[in-house]
């Protein structure tokens, strides 16, 4: 049911009379995918509403509030649970044995699914509306005003653990060595601030299940993966209205390559509306 190579911009308006039921269904389905109806909510609406304009019902055109607006897309169908990301994270960020900044969850399907097991990497979602930042009494955890990364200022942490309970993604733990809460900072301290382009986990992943980049840049692969029209993209716990910056899709090994070649996916481009 996927749509290949239709150049919508070049098509003439033929009126609705000549549209067959099948085409109408395809069109609606695509619209739903953009609007994220399959995911149980608006995908684009899950990111910040700052600077947003409503293009049409169900589609919000975004101006992402940070630049670079670091985000990650996890293609969970191609995660093989090798845990190299977890190891790379521990090594890069000096995570103690009793803690973790990222982990891989296992989901077992029963019934007629095409895969019996799926692995879901989880980490800090660097929410645009982070409950941990609101909960912290001393602003020890804060939203970086440039990159949108939720970071820690360890010396201010009083260790009240409110942020641990506020986080709906189990992304935080108390690190004895730092005498503060420790969490994923998209490797800002250890890699990005030193000029690296990828987080340790994304760089270590052998299948490319974690794609890291700048969602504010339409040429970035993360932007393209989130805004493509054909595969459903979702976030974890949308009901908490945290507006996360870690997106999930089933995905395949070829997803990124196809987007780069422009062969398969079409993606939603707000500038052309």
């Amino acid at each position: 049911m996927r749509i290949h190579g239709i150049k919508f911009d070049d098509t003439k308006n033929e009126g609705t009379g000549s549209v067959t039921k099948m085409e109408r269904r395809k069109f609606l389905k695509m619209g739903f995918a953009i609007a994220g109806v399959f995911a149980g909510g608006k995908i684009l609406g899950l990111t910040s509403i700052v600077g947003s304009a409503r293009a049409s019902d169900g589609i919000e055109v975004e101006a992402y509030p940070y630049s670079p607006h670091y985000s990650m897309v996890v293609r969970q169908a191609i995660c093989i649970d090798c845990e190299r990301c977890v190891d790379a994270c521990k090594k890069t960020n000096h995570v103690p044995d009793y803690g973790y900044r990222t982990r891989i969850l296992t989901k077992k399907y029963e019934g007629k699914w095409d895969k019996a097991v799926e692995f879901i990497p989880v980490l800090c979602n660097h929410c645009n509306n982070p409950p941990c930042v609101r909960g912290c009494p001393t602003k020890a955890t804060y939203k970086d005003p440039i990159t949108g990364i939720v970071r820690m200022n360890s010396k201010k942490c009083i260790g009240c653990k409110t942020c641990i309970l506020a986080c709906p993604y189990d992304a935080r733990y108390f690190c004895e060595e730092k005498r503060a809460i420790d969490k994923c900072d998209f490797c800002w301290d250890e890699r990005l601030s030193k000029g690296e382009k990828l987080t340790a986990c994304a760089a270590a992943c052998p299948t490319g299940a974690r794609t890291f980049g700048n969602i504010a840049d339409p040429d970035d692969i993360v932007y393209k993966l989130v805004h493509q029209a054909e595969e459903v993209v979702w976030v974890l716990r949308p009901e908490d209205n945290t507006k996360p910056n870690v997106f999930y899709m089933k995905g395949t090994i070829g997803s990124v390559e196809r987007i780069l070649k422009g062969t398969k996916y079409r993606y939603f481009d707000p500038t052309k509306i």
Binding site: R134, C136, P137, T138, K139, A140, C157, I158, K161, A180
Partner: peptide
């Protein structure tokens, strides 16, 4: 975990939304 920091940072760096 760090009760003594409370007295400093509650005053110096208050988060009124918390």
């Amino acid at each position: 975990e760090n009760p003594f920091r409370l007295f400093i940072w509650n005053v110096v760096s208050p988060n009124l939304r918390s």
